[in-house]
Amino acid sequence: MTTRTQARDGRPRPASGRTDDGALRLAGVGRSFGAVEALRDVSLEVPAGEVVAVVGPSGCGKSTLLELVCGLQRPDAGTVQAPRAVLMPQGDQLLPWLGALDNAALALRVGGDGRMTRQAARERARPVLAALGLDGFAAVRPAQLSGGMRQRVAFARTLLAGAPVLCLDEPFGALDAITRADAQAWLQDALEAEPRTVLLVTHDVEEAVLLADRIVVLSPRPGRVVADLPVALPHPRAATDPGVVALRQQALERLR
C-alpha cells in the first residue's frame, strides 16, 4: 500500500500516517491561512472504492480539503491518513504547448521512479483518451479543444497518474448544462470500468446525487461537516428519478 509518507518518488510528503486498508481518514482536521480559518474539525472516513461528493458554499474550504488529502498542504490540526492521491485541479491546467495526447501522457512522464519515455507514455495514454471519445484529437492543443474535451483530457491525465485516490475539484464547473450531462456520463462510465476512491467537489447538488455513493455537506467557512448523506440508488440514475429528486432536496436543505 502506497501512502503519502512513502510517496512513489521517495520524497517525504507532509502526512500523518498510512492506512493498510486503502481507506482515507481525516480526523479533527483544521486549516487556517493567517486570520482566515478555512476548515475546522473535519473528520471523514472514506473506504476504498467509494465515490464521495463534497458540496458546500463557495470559499468553505473544499479545494483546501482536497489539497490536504493530496499532500499539497499540511493540516494545522488533526491528522490526514491517505493512500497516494492525485488532484485534478480546479480549471483544467492543461499545458498550452502540448497536444491532447501529450497533456494526458504528462502524468506518466513526470514523478518518481519508472518514468516513461515520450513514446511509451503516448502509447499508454492513447487508449485512455480513446475511451473518453477523443480518438482523433491526439495532436490538438488545448486552445482548439472545447471545454468538455479539455475536461476529458484533464481527467485522462488524472487517471493515468495511477493513484488509488482521485480528488476532482469541480471538474465540470465551467461546462454548460448539456456538456455537463455528457461529462457526468463519461465520468460514471470511466469509474465503473476502473473503480477508484474518489473525492468529487461540486457546486451542483444534482451532480453529487447522480454520481456519488455518499454526499458530504460542508458549512460556510470555516468548513465543517454538517451532513453525511448516503446515496443508496442504483446506477444509471436520471435527474428525474424520484429518489434522486428527494435526495437532492434533502442535501439542498442542509446547505442552507
Partner: peptide, 26 residues
C-alpha cells in the same frame, strides 16, 4: 501559473521535471 505548479507537484514532478516540462516552455 501557480495552478500549473500545483499540477506538477500533485503529479510528483521533481524540480528538474518542473523546469523541463513547465517552466522552460512557458
Amino acid at each position: 501559473d501557480p495552478g500549473q505548479r500545483k499540477l506538477m507537484s500533485t503529479l510528483g514532478a521533481s524540480r528538474w521535471q518542473l523546469l523541463r516540462h513547465v517552466e522552460a516552455p512557458s
